[in-house]
């Protein structure tokens, strides 16, 4: 028996919205520790990793580890039937063919349940090395979204350069080129969540496809902060912490000069 209850059901809506354009089908693995999902996009250029700890749920029970093969677009359609303030409960048997989703309105006046058919999905699980990154940038997620959206109008590839002073996002295309530099905030600058913080061992410059960075920014509603982890010649990690429950991390392979 698997049962997981989230008072803030809208969180689940936001998570699926953040993944479904990148990944069409995925196995969500449920265990005593919580929910995890690892999936690559169809062209194997990026990888999305979701982690939701059991302690982040209001109720969590998982007697036996199970894997839920989900069509994320279809799950998104069902989650659209939930109100934004609804409590969402997920339920499945030990050898499930379906996932039951129950939505309860805050005053308990409306209770609905839906069953989503599960799929057998063959996936390749990748071992992600535990890397110490040379640069870690923490910045407002809305700022990152704006930069990616703005630069995507000009070109396809973004050069991200991280130095101690700041992070520079550069793009060039047929119409011209552009740069946006965000500088490290000084300690006195406003709210913690609005700050740009850079931890750097050595400067890093890497090229990335803006199209994929754009997919990642669908996670912006999940939190005020995004963290970028970079080292030379390895995939960037774009990590969105989800307050109190876990995180969603996107890995994107760089573009490399031939």
């Amino acid at each position: 028996m698997f049962e997981a209850r989230l008072t803030e059901g809208s969180l689940l809506k936001k998570i699926i919205e953040a993944i479904k354009d990148l990944v069409q089908e995925a196995n969500v693995d449920c265990s005593e520790e919580g929910l995890t999902m690892q999936a690559m996009d169809a062209s194997h250029v990026s990888l999305c990793s979701l982690n939701m700890r059991h302690g982040g749920f209001d109720h969590y029970r998982c007697d036996r580890s199970i894997s839920l093969g989900l069509n994320l677009a279809n799950l998104g359609k069902i989650l659209k039937c939930a109100g934004n303030d609804d409590v969402v409960t997920l339920k499945a048997e030990d050898e499930p063919d379906t996932l039951t989703l129950m939505f309860e309105s805050p005053n308990q006046e409306r209770i609905s349940d839906f069953e989503l058919k599960l799929m057998d999905i063959e996936t390749e699980h990748l071992g992600i090395p535990n890397e110490e990154y040379k640069c870690t940038i923490s910045m407002p997620s809305g700022e990152f979204q704006r930069i990616v959206r703005d630069l995507a109008v000009i070109g396809e590839t973004c050069i991200i350069t991280c130095t101690k002073e700041g992070v520079k996002f550069s793009v060039s295309g047929d119409l011209g080129n552009g740069n946006v530099t965000v500088r490290q905030s000084s300690a006195a600058d406003g709210d913690e969540k609005d700050q740009v913080k850079i931890q750097m061992e050595e400067p890093v410059t890497l090229n990335f496809a803006l199209r994929y960075l754009g997919f990642f920014t669908k996670a912006t509603p999940l939190g005020s902060t995004v963290k970028l982890h970079m080292s030379p010649d390895v995939p960037i990690v774009v990590e969105y912490p989800i307050d109190g429950i876990g995180s969603i991390s996107y890995f994107l392979a760089p573009k490399i000069d031939e």
């Binding site: 250029v45 071992g127 992600i128 995939p235 890995f251 392979a253 573009k255 490399i256 031939e258």
Partner: peptide
């Protein structure tokens, strides 16, 4: 020109 690398060239299959 830059070439898009695949995720599979960085992370090994489990």
């Amino acid at each position: 020109a830059t070439k898009q690398k695949s995720m599979l060239s960085f992370f090994n299959k489990k």
